[in-house]
Amino acid sequence: MSLELRGVSFTHRGADPAAGRLLDGVDLSVGSGEVTGLSAPSGAGKSTLLRLAALMVPADSGTVLINGRGFASGATVPRAVRQSVGMVFQSPRAAADPRLRLDALVCAPLDFRDGALRPRPRHHAERLAELTELAQLDAALLHRYPHEVSDGQLQRAMVARALALDPDVLICDEPTAQLDAETTAAILGVLADCAAAGAAVLIASHDRAALSRVADTMVDLSQINHASSA
């Protein structure tokens, strides 16, 4: 269970080539049981790096290794590999389908893995209870739609969703930006527990203080990014 980036570079499509690359030759490695905190000023390319690491966007060059298996840019990624990567986005509003209730959002990865076409929360009552407890989400909120809960509550649901398949690699982009201090600590604790269970966890956040409490390693993106404009 590990995540590794080797020489990953990225330029925004349509960006002025003179402005240079956003990311250039980034190397990063997160081993099993490790929590790595990633920090950088806004605009440095944190979110982009995480999307590259989660194999959501292809890099210009370089390789992303999940559990030691390498994927060069543009390689097809088997479904099983994707299912072993959990992801939490910065904005839960954008990451949650507004037409699905929270219970459906949380259990969707389980059903999609099993080949169902729509989430079936009723099939997963037990796992849902586990996950909501893990992410400290009030179970009474499970029957609400995203527009009926606050950003913080929704983010907890999105964390629960990311944990649904017991991911080997967990990639979190500002997972606690919308949360109060108590919940921030709790969520980071949940992520640390995942690492303790063997997962490789990569968290980007501005909240250095909170991050340093759980991270084994702190990485500054500007130190590992060779892009001239950074």
Partner: peptide, 26 residues
Amino acid sequence: TADYVQLARASGAPTAAIWCTHLIPA
């Protein structure tokens, strides 16, 4: 291109499921 579709795709949801769960209801 919505984040939730990207998220579903990144976490390995089959195309048919993405259509039935996210796109067609939209």
